[in-house]
């Protein structure tokens, strides 16, 4: 196994883990009780995928790190997630914009992974693609409702799309040696985004600023705070079982 495979699995695992952590913050705070349950479902799916991917990454690395060692004992410079997932939740529109773009990327990614030569990754992709389809469906449903709802919701949804859009470019940085080259997913992503934004009466922002660095461990200021909270208890009891 190559180092690339390890980095690749780690990156996807970190995406899912940090997304789950952010979605979990909504628990007991959603705009409607039914939505509380939906967001928790999506968080659980992301967390489930994260555990499979991190476990596999640990095996590829061969240094004896399991999912918890990878999740709890790395510092922010060692995390490989994209910046998109670590951005704060913002209002419900920002959360839905983040989820929409993330799942519009994860769906074709996992679908392609399901057909890749690495059996473990293929199995994870096959399972996660169904979940991603549901996440995309859910996020798109809300992007449309908020975009084409009231004046206020339209304004908030457009602002959210504008705020989050720059962070999508990082997702598709070419990596020809990876099991799935993210650059090959861009057309699919663009088509999904165009359809949904159009129906939502929203405008796709112009491309310009394209922050990146997450895959190399250079993050926003937000990640360190997120990790401090996530890791505090685990680190306070070195070697303990839970």
């Amino acid at each position: 196994m190559t180092g690339t495979h390890f980095e690749f699995a780690l990156g996807l695992g970190d995406d899912a883990l940090i997304a789950a952590q952010r979605l979990g913050e909504w628990t007991s705070r959603a705009p409607e009780m039914e939505e509380d349950i939906a967001l928790a479902n999506i968080a659980l799916d992301q967390l489930g995928a994260a555990r499979l991917l991190l476990t596999y990454a640990g095996e590829l690395e061969g240094a004896g790190r399991d999912e918890d060692a990878l999740a709890y004992l790395r510092d922010d410079r060692q995390f490989r997630n994209c910046l998109l997932v670590e951005l704060p939740n913002g209002d419900f529109a920002v959360t839905m914009a983040k989820l929409f773009f993330l799942s519009a990327y994860q769906l074709p990614l996992y679908a392609a992974l399901a057909g890749c030569a690495d059996e473990r990754l293929a199995a994870i992709g096959a399972k996660a693609r169904k979940e991603s389809a549901y996440h995309l469906d859910h996020a798109a449903l809300w992007v449309k409702r908020l975009g084409d709802g009231t004046e206020e919701s339209h304004r908030r949804m457009q602002a959210a799309v504008d705020e989050v859009w720059p962070y999508v470019h990082e997702l598709f940085a070419a990596d020809p040696a990876a099991p799935v080259d993210p650059a090959t997913l861009r057309a699919d992503f663009d088509a999904t985004v165009a359809d949904v934004l159009d129906e939502a009466t929203l405008t796709r922002p112009a491309d310009g600023w394209a922050p990146g660095g997450g895959r190399a461990g250079v993050h926003t200021e937000h990640l360190s705070f997120l990790l401090a909270e996530m890791q505090v208890l685990h680190r306070a009891h070195p070697g303990a079982r839970w």
């Binding site: 409607e32 039914e34 939505e35 349950i37 469906d137 449903l141």
Partner: peptide, 20 residues
């Protein structure tokens, strides 16, 4: 039962609430 503004959301909510 549950509350939803439209059928599409009602179906999604039903899936989440009653088939967890």
């Amino acid at each position: 039962s549950l509350h939803a503004p439209d059928a599409e959301l009602a179906l999604r909510n039903a899936r989440d609430v009653y088939t967890r």
